[in-house]
């Protein structure tokens, strides 16, 4: 089969899903499912794949590997949604309480728009952004300084970090909620702790494994101490710092979800709270909807940070 035909077939899976969704009657145990939102999302996916098919493949405006990767991923997503829709929504396998059909799940983005999509998501993103940002502001400069002075590292930082860094930050959640009057402050503190250690550990690693030649060359050229930090140490440690930022984000998100689940309420919502609250009410369709929303937030977040990363690491590509 030629590549164009194969890609066209993959793209049309999403259209096929929409058509099937209208043609095949709903399963007896899940009657009258609201189909609008799911179909809308499938149509968005279809347009996305169509863009790469036409603009990328037929008009050859994008690299063939990129188009191939997009198509492979579209195939994976398309088959998952197809199987989910047919087996659960149309044939009615598995019990409807625990295994909701895609139609029901995605409908909540419309039905529960205010609480789920607006309030909870905004609150979570705001907390994550603030806590993560504060952790970065403290951890990177501190890491640069500690990595620069071996005595400070060996005598004070390393003994403390070796013991304290791997302690799960989650176990501080109850204590933080007790000590801080508002949940936002407690959550901020916990995210800070969670993201701080991976970032500082990797910053120090980056500084200490940096080739001494660079520092000595800068010294010989009479570079001031301040410029040494901003022009040599920080860019040199940047690849390692990015590894730390990745782990820090994963940890911050886990900790945030737990802290929200324990401390949140209707007046102080958040995605973690939303999931755990509806778990108590056995509304699993809302939970699945929230999980997909979290994945979406993650996609947007990592997309933005990848842009920043490739901008900041431009020099590395040039060196290679």
């Amino acid at each position: 089969m030629s590549r164009g035909l194969k890609y066209t077939a993959i793209t049309s899976i999403f259209l096929l899903i929409i058509i099937l969704n209208y043609l095949i009657p709903d399963a007896a145990n899940r009657p009258n499912q609201p189909k609008l939102v799911f179909n809308g999302m499938m149509f968005t996916f279809f347009l996305f794949a169509l863009f790469f098919l036409v603009y990328g493949h037929f008009m050859k405006r994008q690299s063939p590997t990129r188009v191939r990767t997009i198509m492979d991923i579209s195939l994976i997503f398309g088959s998952i949604f197809f199987l989910w829709l047919v087996t659960i929504g149309k044939l009615g396998f598995l019990d409807p309480l625990r295994w909701p059909s895609p139609n029901q799940v995605f409908y909540y983005y419309l039905a529960d728009f205010d609480l789920l999509v607006v309030k909870s998501t905004l609150a979570t993103v705001k907390r994550l952004a603030i806590g993560y940002f504060v952790a970065i502001i403290f951890a990177i400069p501190l890491g640069l300084i500690v990595g620069r002075y071996p005595n400070l590292h060996d005598r004070l930082y390393y003994p403390v970090a070796k013991v304290v860094a791997p302690i799960p930050p989650i176990i501080l959640v109850p204590y933080a909620i007790e000590l801080f009057p508002k949940i936002d402050q407690a959550v901020l503190f916990i995210i800070f702790i969670g993201a701080f250690w991976p970032i500082i550990v990797n910053t120090i690693y980056g500084v200490r494994t940096l080739d001494v030649k660079y520092i000595e060359a800068a010294r010989t050229l009479g570079v001031s101490e301040k410029r040494l930090y901003t022009k040599v140490l920080f860019p040199g440690a940047l690849p390692s710092i990015y590894a730390g930022l990745f782990i820090g984000l994963v940890l911050a998100f886990i900790v945030l979800a737990v802290a929200e689940g324990i401390g949140g309420s209707h007046s102080e919502p958040g995605l973690g709270w939303y999931v755990l609250y509806y778990a108590d009410l056995f509304e699993y369709d809302k939970i699945v909807a929230a999980i997909f929303l979290i994945a979406f937030v993650v996609v947007v977040w990592t997309g933005i940070s990848d842009r920043i990363q490739s901008r900041l690491l431009k020099w590395q590509r040039r060196v290679e």
Binding site: I76, R98, V258, G272, Y278, I291, I294
Partner: peptide
């Protein structure tokens, strides 16, 4: 795929896993 899935905090799967 791994990059996206790895960032979703696994805690949110817990209620589902318990069910």
């Amino acid at each position: 795929l791994a990059k996206v899935t790895a960032h979703v905090p696994p805690v949110v799967y817990l209620p589902y896993a318990i069910a």
